[in-house]
Write a protein that binds this DNA or RNA. Sequence first.
DNA 1: CAGGATCCCACAGGATACTG
DNA 2: CAGTATCCTGTGGGATCCTG
Lengths: 132, 132
Amino acid sequence: MMINTLNFNEDYLGKLEQNICYNKILNMADTIDVLTGKWKIPIIICLSFKPKRFSEISRELKTITDRTLSKELKFLEENLLITRNIIDEYPLSIEYQITEHGLSLTKILMILREWGEIHRERILESHRSTKI
Amino acid sequence: MMINTLNFNEDYLGKLEQNICYNKILNMADTIDVLTGKWKIPIIICLSFKPKRFSEISRELKTITDRTLSKELKFLEENLLITRNIIDEYPLSIEYQITEHGLSLTKILMILREWGEIHRERILESHRSTKI
DNA sequence: CAGGATCCCACAGGATACTG
DNA sequence: CAGTATCCTGTGGGATCCTG
């Protein structure tokens, strides 16, 4: 997983530089991978406050389907961003908890938010000026 | 564009906090939007060195199709990350150039790369330990 | 050279129904 | 409660061919 097949031309910045550049891009893509899609960021944020159960997450995210939530939780667990803890056997109760590694995304999310704000400003500004 | 329809429950952190949180997530999603997909990051990096023409970009990215390159360049232009400059009419020659705004993504890309490196380490490490 | 048009497939994610 | 199974649609992106 996470290994995509992007191919830069071998002449790109010379072979050595190209390989370095190639790996850097792979690393960026890996990070994007973990944040992309409609629900990963909301789930991460939702769990960053405290551990929660399946139904709690589902309720807070409101429009997510069980199927999607189930898949995304599995994905995040495989990526070591959350853990799935069995709390009680009878009745079955399971808790999802963010890991340290998962929390380390917080910094990135803040930076994404900041840039997104600026970006939205620019776009709106440019739309205004073209309409005058 | 860029406005998705994510819906947090109204009770989420209380109504006020929820609205703030909701907007923050929209901003994050906007940034991700600009970086997601197979080719946006490579194109941005490719153009961050110097302005290039369609065929140059195509050659350097090697496996990208004309159709995809065309669409992505249009997307990046609409998002004010690059400009499309007509250099010569006869023969037609056009140059794509990254904007200041586009260059401001560099910082984010570095951070994504750093986290991606760490992430890959963790994943590999965990796979090693489960196989022992 | 700088793309547009068309066809095609894989995958994300919603709707709905069911299970231990 | 904590999911799984099935069906369905929209979109990303490759392949191929065509044009000013």
